[in-house]
């Protein structure tokens, strides 16, 4: 028994179905969603960008490096998590490190980060939170933990000649609680914090 009228072969039906479905699902549908996004939710649809003095400085959702040309962290900015995206926070090469738990390269990297962050912030290596020592899944994690942000307060204050209390208050005002009070983890958005930091007067 054939499903098709006057015994049209399955392949011919399949080909026509694929063409029509491609027009509907592959062209019309994404264009309609794009239209809705661009008209009703343009800020989100275009990447939740952050601007300073009229210029785009990044996306609130995409982390960015605050390092010099040689990759050394700049002490006057809050530092993000380690990143495995390209050379670090490469928006065109999202990736985790994919190192396994016993990988010697990862173990060495964590030890190195521990020593570097301890020295950079003049803190005890044992006080460094886990997010500061580990690369995120995307390599573009825009957040750090409140603990890691607070740990950087003294360094930032000294570097920018600001009162420690003012910088700490700034961090605390940027701590985002869990979504709906219980989903995910508390975060601090590093770019938004740094933008506010830039505007902070001594």
């Amino acid at each position: 028994m054939s499903s098709s009228r006057s015994g049209i072969p399955h392949y011919w039906v399949a080909l026509r179905a694929m063409l029509v479905l491609t027009v509907v699902l592959g062209v019309a549908y994404p264009l309609i969603i794009t239209g809705i996004g661009q008209l009703a939710l343009p800020a989100q649809a275009n990447g939740s960008t952050e601007t300073v003095d009229g210029g785009t400085v990044g996306s609130a959702l995409i982390g960015q490096s605050s390092s010099d040309a040689d990759g050394n962290p700049l002490p006057e900015w809050f530092q993000p998590r380690p990143s495995a995206a390209g050379e670090g926070y490469d928006g065109g090469a999202s990736s985790g490190s994919n190192y396994g738990p016993e990988n010697t390269d990862l173990i060495a990297a964590i030890e190195e980060r521990k020593a570097q962050i301890a020295e950079f912030n003049s803190v005890n290596p044992d006080d460094i939170p886990v997010d500061a020592l580990t690369a995120s899944a995307s390599g573009l994690d825009p957040h750090i933990s409140p603990e890691y942000a607070l740990l950087q307060v003294k360094r930032i204050a000294a570097e920018r000649n600001l009162a420690v209390e003012d910088v700490r208050a700034l961090v605390e005002s940027h701590i985002q609680a869990r979504e709906l009070g219980y989903l995910g983890e508390p975060t601090v958005n590093v770019l938004q914090l740094n933008i506010a930091l830039k505007a902070l007067k001594a």
Partner: peptide
């Protein structure tokens, strides 16, 4: 595991907002 224990948790390859 060696790396998670050294870092203080299994956060390699995880996003802060998800934990």
């Amino acid at each position: 595991g060696t790396a998670p224990e050294l870092a203080g948790g299994a956060m390699e390859g995880k996003e802060q907002r998800f934990g």
